[in-house]
Design a protein around this nucleic acid. Structure first.
Lengths: 160, 160
DNA sequence: CTTTCTGCAAAGGCTTTGCAGTCCG
DNA sequence: CGGACTGCAAAGCCTTTGCAGAAAG
């Protein structure tokens, strides 16, 4: 999904957030935000930690700090988080258009989609029930194109 | 939400499921399904356990068995499950129309809604991306009518 | 009788927390 | 300098699992 044009970089926006709350700009926080926004992709804490420097290497950040910083990013509006299979998944929120996900229950791939109509339905339902909407999460569970193809292949083979 | 008319009661349907898999009808499973369907409401494991007999009382069921049986109910198509705030929430699936939820982030109330249009959007998006849909979960986060009202009241008081 | 179940307690996965030392502003 | 932050290890929370005895078919 293409980035939106925003006036501040995620880093700058995070700095602003920290300042507004009297929090400090540490090397760990800077490094993490940089890493998190270096590629647009969903991730969970484990995946993020995996691509960070190990203990003892330069720029190592402890697990605790990773979790703490991810939480701050959510508070700051940089990341969105939701639960999937018992873990927390993070997704870029700042600088990317609002979107939802298709989830392949076979290969666990997440695919983004965007639908204005979905947002309309959302707002309509909220109004109907007297809610003031903050956000929403929609996940469509199913089998992706690739897995459908593989399964078909496999079935053919099974028949031989 | 009004129940649908179904030919089998949840209990009967669960019995069928068990039989079809060579599983056994135990007093614990019967009792749990009965309890789960005695009121139409969302619940998590803890909430369910809370309203069950305690250890030592008649019909006591262990935590492990509760979790195991909830899982079986999901497999059997009696319950739907999704994650909210780090725990698993269960919802009647069998005998009730498909629906989604509004979630009040202030009082943690879940409100059901139904929208055919939402399902249409879902199918459209799945087709567009080559997915075969199994199910979906949508949660709209916001503030409910009651909490909005209370907040307004509270603000007024604050001003006095 | 055989296989599945149950309760118990212990383990597991993910995330948070308490603490002492460190660093930012 | 003082308060906020970090790393470490330990704890927490929810859920699952191994096992021995109990029960279903």
């Amino acid at each position: 999904m293409a980035p939106l044009s925003v006036s501040l970089s995620p880093q700058e926006r995070f700095a602003e957030y920290l300042q507004s709350r009297g929090l400090r700009q540490t090397s760990q926080r800077k490094f993490l935000v940089e890493q998190v926004f270096s590629q647009h992709d969903h991730f969970d804490a484990e995946e993020l930690i995996e691509r960070l420097p190990r203990r003892g290497e330069p720029n190592y950040v402890s697990t605790a700090t990773v979790y703490r910083t991810l939480r701050e990013c959510v508070d700051a509006g940089l990341l969105f988080s939701f639960q999937l299979d018992g873990r927390t998944v993070y997704d870029h929120d700042y600088g990317y258009p609002q979107h939802d996900h298709l989830y392949c229950t076979r290969c666990r791939k997440l695919v983004e989609f965007q639908s204005d109509q979905l947002r309309e339905v959302r707002d309509e339902m909220a109004t109907l029930h007297g809610f003031r909407v903050d956000s929403h999460r929609m996940i469509i569970n199913g089998i992706c194109r690739d897995c459908l193809r593989n399964r078909r292949k496999k079935r053919k083979q099974d028949l031989v």
